[in-house]
Simulated assay, not measured.
Amino acid sequence: METSDKYLFKYRGCCFIQNMVTPEYIDSLEDFEIKDSDVFLVTFPKSGTIWTQNILSLIYHEGHRNGTEDMELADRVPWIEYNIQNVDYVNRPSPRLFSSHLPYHLMPKGLKNGRGKVIYVARNPKDVLVSYYHFSKVSVLLEEVEDFDAIMEKFLAGRVLGSLWLDHIEGWYAQRDNMNILFLTYEEMKKDLRSSVLKVCDFLGKRLTEEEIDDVVDKASFGKMSVDRRTNYTTMPPDVLDFSKGRFMRKGTVGDWKNIMTVAQNERFDSVFKERMEKLPFKFCWDINDEL
């Protein structure tokens, strides 16, 4: 391990939650056997992970869509790096759905060699930061930093879960021609969820009826997800999430950073991120009113 504190440890360039995974397990993932039918949802933390997990679950599992089964997202689309319940991932029935915050270089070799499919969801890093700030208050597993300036400096230095946002997105986007990968942004999903669901279905080769698509879109709305115990994490034990400090699903909006960050903080953020962001080979829709 490179560095560690009470909440996070850094290994091979990435920050992980203490006591939920070991360096040995992270290393073992390199040889995790990938099937062609596997689907990986990859995000930097607080970039729409739960939302997209739910969309995948609704697309693949009719019982999730029609409400005939009661299975949480963490069981439907489990974390490849945080197998805290020691589930037999190897023998899960296909298609296996997985979530991950891992950087590209720590992913299984099979995935890098073109097996399976990857959906990568990116979000405006300023909104990611604000969401992480609020989430740290609810999460017992993360350090609660009351001072926004302090957590912003940690974020800009990559001393948060997932490490540096820029490294994460650059590492994955560099593989866009080498892997079976679909890139989405949180903002385009907010702007036109139906088009995004159709894009995911097309990428995965899933054929749903118009009515089924409508149902997925309806149940993937923030309003429906915030009251669905399968998606709102209210079943999490109090030693993981403390709901007296706030809600896990808080707003689900675009541009909330404008309500939190001061002009000086915004300028500080841009001074660190802007130069590298301008070199990223794609254009972000940062605002819900931007043209895609």
Score class of each variant (00 low, 15 high):
residue 49 T to Q: 00
residue 69 E to H: 11
residue 68 T to N: 12
residue 31 D to E: 13
residue 78 P to L: 11
residue 89 Y to A: 12
residue 66 N to C: 05
residue 50 I to L: 01
residue 25 Y to N: 15
residue 20 M to A: 06
residue 88 D to R: 14
residue 88 D to W: 08
residue 25 Y to C: 13
residue 50 I to T: 02
residue 53 Q to C: 02
residue 30 E to L: 07
residue 77 V to C: 02
residue 40 F to Q: 02
residue 59 I to E: 05
residue 58 L to G: 06
residue 31 D to T: 04
residue 60 Y to F: 10
residue 51 W to F: 07
residue 24 E to L: 06
residue 60 Y to G: 03
residue 71 M to S: 12
residue 86 N to V: 02
residue 55 I to E: 01
residue 52 T to Y: 00
residue 55 I to D: 01
residue 69 E to M: 14
residue 50 I to Y: 00
residue 20 M to I: 05
residue 52 T to V: 01
residue 56 L to P: 00
residue 82 Y to E: 12
residue 64 H to I: 10
residue 91 N to Q: 11
residue 37 S to K: 05
residue 51 W to M: 05
residue 26 I to A: 13
residue 63 G to S: 06
residue 67 G to W: 03
residue 71 M to C: 12
residue 93 P to T: 11
residue 88 D to C: 14
residue 63 G to W: 04
residue 61 H to K: 14
residue 58 L to V: 02
residue 22 T to I: 01
residue 90 V to Q: 11
residue 37 S to G: 08
residue 20 M to F: 07
residue 66 N to R: 02
residue 63 G to K: 08
residue 65 R to S: 06
residue 30 E to P: 08
residue 46 K to F: 07
residue 69 E to G: 11
residue 41 L to R: 00
residue 59 I to H: 10
residue 25 Y to A: 14
residue 55 I to K: 02
residue 81 E to Q: 14
residue 25 Y to H: 09
residue 29 L to F: 10
residue 40 F to V: 04
residue 76 R to D: 15
residue 48 G to H: 01
residue 31 D to G: 07
residue 86 N to Q: 10
residue 67 G to S: 10
residue 81 E to D: 13
residue 32 F to S: 09
residue 57 S to K: 07
residue 93 P to I: 09
residue 69 E to T: 15
residue 76 R to Q: 14
residue 75 D to R: 11
residue 51 W to C: 06
residue 33 E to F: 06
residue 90 V to Y: 13
residue 35 K to F: 08
residue 91 N to M: 09
residue 61 H to I: 05
residue 35 K to D: 13
residue 42 V to Y: 01
residue 87 V to Y: 13
residue 43 T to M: 01
residue 52 T to S: 00
residue 92 R to Y: 11
residue 61 H to Q: 11
residue 32 F to G: 11
residue 28 S to R: 04
residue 63 G to A: 09
residue 51 W to S: 05
residue 52 T to D: 00
residue 70 D to H: 08
residue 93 P to C: 10
residue 84 I to A: 15
residue 60 Y to M: 08
residue 25 Y to V: 04
residue 85 Q to N: 14
residue 58 L to K: 11
residue 71 M to P: 08
residue 83 N to P: 14
residue 55 I to N: 02
residue 42 V to Q: 03
residue 62 E to N: 10
residue 43 T to Q: 00
residue 67 G to N: 10
residue 62 E to T: 09
residue 37 S to T: 10
residue 23 P to R: 12
residue 91 N to H: 15
residue 76 R to S: 15
residue 41 L to D: 00
residue 36 D to V: 03
residue 42 V to I: 03
residue 82 Y to Q: 13
residue 50 I to V: 02
residue 49 T to N: 00
residue 74 A to I: 06
residue 29 L to N: 06
residue 88 D to M: 14
residue 89 Y to T: 10
residue 31 D to P: 03
residue 60 Y to D: 01
residue 66 N to G: 03
residue 56 L to I: 01
residue 65 R to N: 08
residue 93 P to E: 07
residue 50 I to A: 01
residue 84 I to D: 15
residue 36 D to Y: 05
residue 40 F to W: 02
residue 25 Y to Q: 12
residue 49 T to C: 01
residue 21 V to F: 07
residue 34 I to P: 13
residue 31 D to L: 10
residue 52 T to N: 00
residue 93 P to V: 08
residue 73 L to W: 03
residue 41 L to K: 00
residue 26 I to D: 06
residue 35 K to Y: 09
residue 54 N to Y: 01
residue 42 V to T: 04
residue 92 R to D: 03
residue 45 P to S: 07
residue 81 E to P: 08
residue 88 D to V: 11
residue 46 K to T: 04
residue 21 V to L: 10
residue 79 W to A: 12
residue 45 P to Y: 08
residue 51 W to P: 13
residue 83 N to F: 07
residue 26 I to Q: 09
